[in-house]
Design a protein around this nucleic acid. Sequence first.
RNA 1: GUGGCCGUAGCUCAGUUGGUUAGAGCGCCAGGUUGUGAUCCUGGAUGUCGGGGGUUCGAAUCCCCUCGGUCACCCCA
Length: 418
Amino acid sequence: MAQPLFQAPPGTRDLMPPVTDRMRAMVAIFADEATKAGFGQVTPPMFEDVGVFVRIGESTDVVNKELYTFEDKGGRTIALRPEQTASLCRVFVQRRPLTPWKAWYFGANFRYEQAQKGRYRQFDQVGAEVIGSSDPDIDTEIIALAWRFYERIGLTNVTLLLNSLGDAADRGRYTNALRTHFTEHRGSLTEQSRETLDRNPLRVMDSKRQPDQAIIDAAPLLGDFLSDDARTAFDRVQAGLTALAIPFEIAPRLVRGLDYYNRTTFEFVAPGLDAAQNAVGGGGRYDGLVANLGGPDEPGIGFALGIDRTLLACDAEDAMQGPDTTAQVWVVVTAEGIEGLEVADRLRRAGIRADRTESGRSMKAQMKAANKSGAAVAVVIGPDEVRDEQAGIKPLRGQGDQTTVDNQQIVQAVQEFL
RNA sequence: GUGGCCGUAGCUCAGUUGGUUAGAGCGCCAGGUUGUGAUCCUGGAUGUCGGGGGUUCGAAUCCCCUCGGUCACCCCA
């Protein structure tokens, strides 16, 4: 049937091996890097009071049109999280851990969007946040965490784009300058950009539409609007990255889509990823968001990395292959008893990946399955072996004849082939 | 939300200007080898041709609607 009765909802996928194996390994590497850097894992619920996410900014698409919301049986308005930074800020406000608080996370996010390559309605991210410090060296440290992660998974074709949005006041002055500039050229802008201009002039900078490019190129640059403080901090971050030998590219027009960002913002782009969506990670400082959520006026910075997209980027350069999950040994049993179960269990307890064919199949069928599994060796047990309390040990690759060992020697005999 | 392309077996796909019981390869199952895989040979099973409606003597093929996939816009990881 080409279209079964039920399918995964649009924009969602069923992740299966080997993708699941690679993702698991990737998350384990991130966990290791984050732990080494002093971050603790935090797992907030996948849904929150919708208000938590509304604080991200009402002019962002993520909240004004992509939010999955529903009313629960208690009459609360709940939203599936579209990202986790706001959730982590809520955790901070509710739990009040000591500052600076360093937390990392992993999990699914949900956005109601039209799916395309690298973009799904449910997608996994790993991320890290530091709340309670405005030290620009923390900015560097957070960027370094992401960078070292990419290095560890073997992804080499990644570009770090860096910018500073300045403080709220700088941003306000800059936004006004942009509004003036774009309004002057309003007639030449695409219709979509004109709409964006009315909502949020900053975001017009993000347009990839050809007719807009000339006007965007002529627009004032954020760098000219930075306060001395913001400028000094930005310089310090650049010095830090240089000291850590982390290459970066200043992207004066990098304007990230979430309203809460200020000062340091960055994005990781994978040019090898053959898709329109080639930003594999991004983040920035969000001083003010915690206060917005009803907490103390603590600054914060963090990033999120898309697991799906990162994996796609890895595909482009054959990186992050994931663990070997093929069976090492196949247990072939044609006797009536339960020897197959027993031997497989014994091998597994010895740490060996051992599998078997369902009982009752012919020896030929079982050997075929053994061969196809990729196992290096088969343990063969028929009525004769059961009677003699022995087992046949048959190499499945290369040459070598089948040998016979005592039942108690099976694990040891198999190990010689691994 | 908008647009392009695409829906035929488990998978990849063929199917002429509409014309008999809709095909191939791979995979799967069985046998050749009554206790031994890979190669080889033989045989076998599986399709509401995504769904609904229409045109027609006749529709996988043409028309309409609908569902789904994919890529792109928008936006973002």
